[in-house]
């Protein structure tokens, strides 16, 4: 479960303080498939980054599975990201010199909990689950955009994180691929009961999620459930 309490984020841009978030509060339950939505500059990506321990907040607090993560030190945040958070990026961010399997193993290797063989088996299984069976030893440049995003999803899922954060995951995909990816994530959400939080303004993504928290100028303007937007 993710609990966001009165979160404020101020950062300096061109010598001016920008209030990216101005007292945002929300509660996201386990297994939710939801999105932070809003136009550019609304604060949705900033909020996603704060939940993902990628940035430091200015005020307020964030809890992940009852642990306050907003006040942790940088190494402690690294540990949280290692074990509890999976990320899916707009531009996939795969390591081009590694194969699909090795990219997935990257998320496991840092945990130091599996042998090489175990990592290989787990990676093969998860890649098969995202529809990439037979393509495990291909490098990113030998895969299509949709396939690369599937590798990225497999990498996020492989360590069974509490929450998966996806920042505009379909922005670089055509509509057919976007649909397939969203369908896949929805299935995985149901199968693994993983919490998916999107940051997006893509209508297709918003049509798939069960809950939308809309932001504008750093404030929550609506919090709606079950495609009621």
């Amino acid at each position: 479960m993710v609990v966001i309490k009165d979160v404020e984020k101020v950062y300096l841009s061109n010598s001016e303080n920008v209030h990216a978030l101005q007292g945002v509060s929300a509660k996201i339950s386990d297994g939710e498939f939801m999105a932070f939505a809003g136009p550019s500059g609304s604060g949705k990506t900033t909020l996603l980054n704060l939940v993902g321990c990628l940035d430091s907040l200015s005020k307020g607090s964030i809890f992940l599975d009852d642990e306050e993560i907003s006040s942790l030190s940088s190494p402690q945040k690294s540990l949280i990201r290692q074990k509890k958070i999976g990320f899916i990026f707009q531009s996939y961010n795969l390591i081009p010199v590694l194969t699909a399997r090795e990219n997935v193993e990257l998320a496991l290797d840092i945990l130091h909990t599996h042998t090489k063989k175990e990592m290989k088996d787990i990676s093969y299984a998860i890649l098969s689950e995202v529809g990439l069976a037979g393509l495990e030893e291909r490098k990113p440049n030998q895969l299509s955009g949709g396939q690369q995003q599937r590798v990225s999803i497999a990498r996020a899922l492989v360590k069974n994180p509490s929450v998966i954060l996806a920042d505009e995951p379909t922005a670089n995909l055509d509509s057919a691929n976007s649909e397939m990816i969203l369908q896949l994530m929805k299935e995985l959400n149901k199968k693994h009961n993983s919490t998916f939080i999107f940051s997006t303004h893509d209508q297709m993504v918003l049509s798939y999620v069960d809950r939308i928290i809309s932001l504008k100028d750093g404030l929550i303007v609506s919090d709606e459930t079950k495609r009621s937007v």
Partner: peptide, 13 residues
């Protein structure tokens, strides 16, 4: 840069 960022998000020090 983006790979460095990605490695950091995975928890690499």
């Amino acid at each position: 840069k983006s790979e460095i960022g990605m490695l950091k998000t995975l928890g690499y020090t």
